[in-house]
Design a protein around this nucleic acid. Structure first.
Lengths: 331, 331
DNA sequence: TTCACTTAGGTAAACGTTTACCTATCGACT
DNA sequence: AGTCGATAGGTAAACGTTTACCTAAGTGAA
């Protein structure tokens, strides 16, 4: 029952095409009088164009899909927020999907987004390797953030963080202040996401003339729950004086486990996080971590996507963001 | 270029109508043979129906809009997540909007959602009083959560938390353990959201034969930043031995401010939160708080909305959720 | 044979836009 | 007088579905 373009047309005594032209500012050949009449009717009748009908014919929705593994991880909350504001700044909206790191959910979100006609998709860090057959078929412009991804011609840009360097910096920081037995906690051990970080961790040791005890490594997931469990396991298995966690959520879980055993941070065990989520400085013992400028990454991703949408011929962007260490009170 | 229903029809040697009937299981008068041929072509050609075209004609999108003030507040992150899983369980998807507690943004999200044909909208707790003129015009089925809302006939349900009781319980808990000077920190002082809580806070004092010193009240916003600022102000102005914060984010900010001044929690000052967000038990000093069963609220909201969509004649639900105190280590 | 019913499927309009192309009028210029 | 170029706007198809209604063939009974 909402007002349509035809209602406006009828009341203005013109055709729907004329109204459409005015609305879309393709009105160089429309008289000032008609134009004004249309705009005033638009206001009076509270006309809002039906985006669905519009998308159907223009094949563009000005909507961007965002897929993250877990919105409860504050890193993704911040990223999603950043993407959303960046998109809105350029007249786009976003629609969010949680994959739970489940390939089937990811695929079904992808089809959902496609069938809803999103103009582009941002796929954020995940242990998953995306279904390249599906992606290739969908042909939706894509931004990959911090993930392994096949080379597709709909891949508009990659925004990656230099995880190797991030892990290297984190471990080096701990080594510099005297730690020699450092635990390493990260996500899925099979994902490149984790392998690369582990390489950085090991390089830091190598360069310091230290070796890495495999007993100190625990990889599984990036959430706080795994941080808690992994730390308990590590504590039962071996001893260490510092922990190099590959996400702040892991670090939060680790801290809880350490306290559980009566260990204080950083006196008995130092803890490094990764991501610098907004909660990190708010913890009672503000967390030392690796800063990765989440908001900037989100803006970059959306910017690259929209630039690509507006001109697909431009060269693809491959950004590698350099992280830095932030020293707070847990190291 | 994606496969359409016509491609299927052509290759199956039938009309598009027949394909549509099979796809929608309105195929009682279609032969088994045709049916099988169609389904196998659907698989072979990776056909996915174009939701946009479908929505245009059916006037239903199976998408629900969710408007929250600030997704960075973990309470809303959890709520949104709960709504999303509840919606997916029933074959709906969600689309998320941040209002930043800005009436204009909220209105523009509302029009956005309307023009994108969402079937219903969940509006979560906010200081804002929604634009009833707009809402009435849009006529989109609505769920209101913890907000003041005009009575509209498109209002499918209200899911509210008994804030008066929550604040009462929080303050009573502190009074019971011996505190008499308790600071009260909450959101926008003009919003009913805050007024109601303040009433509960005052009732707790009244029933204990205590009076409330207005100097102990600081209201502004629900985020951690305000918690920090408000606590500094309170500390400069007066003295107290406990804080009754109306969100866990506020409590986190408050804790930081207290430590800043060398005060330890709970020895020098006890702190109560509200919401029981997932981070609350993870803080180094796990936060005592008021539990409000966020996930259940989200499921309830989505359930009520979808029930209403499927049968708008059923009576409206008005749920009042009763909160409970969780005692951890900050009190 | 006729009628009615069932089965299997087709036709075409409709949803609300956009857009390529067409028409008509008016001056101005050759 | 005829042509041309603006100017102002209209026509109708198209996007990919769904659905109310139509058709045609076959069957069974009267």
């Amino acid at each position: 029952m909402a007002t349509t373009i035809k209602d406006i047309a009828r009341q203005a005594g013109v055709s729907a095409a004329t109204v459409s032209k005015v609305l879309n500012r393709k009105d160089q050949f429309i008289s000032e009088e008609t134009r004004e009449k249309i705009w005033s009717l638009v206001k009076e009748l509270n006309y809002t164009p039906n985006s669905i009908a519009r998308s159907l014919i223009t094949r563009s929705s000005r909507v961007i899909g965002i897929i993250v593994p877990d919105i409860l991880n504050a890193y993704f909350t911040e990223l999603v927020r950043a993407c959303d504001v960046a998109a809105r700044e350029r007249g786009y909206s976003t629609i969010l999907c949680n994959s739970d790191s489940d390939p089937e959910k990811e695929a079904s979100h992808l089809t959902f987004l496609a069938s809803h006609g999103v103009d582009g998709i941002v796929m954020a860090a995940s242990d998953l390797i995306p279904d390249s057959e599906l992606l290739g078929r969908l042909r939706i412009p894509l931004i990959s953030m911090d993930r392994e991804i096949p080379d597709l011609d709909c891949l508009a840009a990659r925004i990656d963080t230099d995880y190797e360097q991030g892990a290297f910096l984190s471990a080096s920081h701990l080594i510099r202040v005297g730690h020699t037995r450092i635990a390493f906690v990260s996500g899925n051990p099979l994902a490149s996401n984790t392998k690369i970080r582990r390489a950085g961790f090991e390089r830091a040791h190598r360069e310091a003339g230290l070796s890495v005890d495999p007993d100190l490594i625990e990889c599984g997931a990036f959430n706080h729950r795994f941080g808690l469990i992994a730390t308990r396991t590590l504590l039962d298995r071996t001893s260490f004086s510092a922990m190099c966690c590959m996400s702040d959520m892991l670090a939060m879980g680790a801290t809880v486990a350490l306290r559980e055993r009566g260990l204080s941070v950083p006196e008995d065990c130092a803890v490094m996080g990764f991501d610098n989520i907004y909660i990190a400085p708010l913890l009672v013992r503000p967390l030392s971590t690796v800063e990765r400028r989440i908001s900037e990454a989100g803006h970059l991703a959306i910017g690259a996507l929209i630039d690509f949408l507006e001109d697909p011929s431009q060269p693809r962007r491959m950004v590698l963001m350099e992280p830095t260490v932030i020293e707070r009170q847990t190291t």
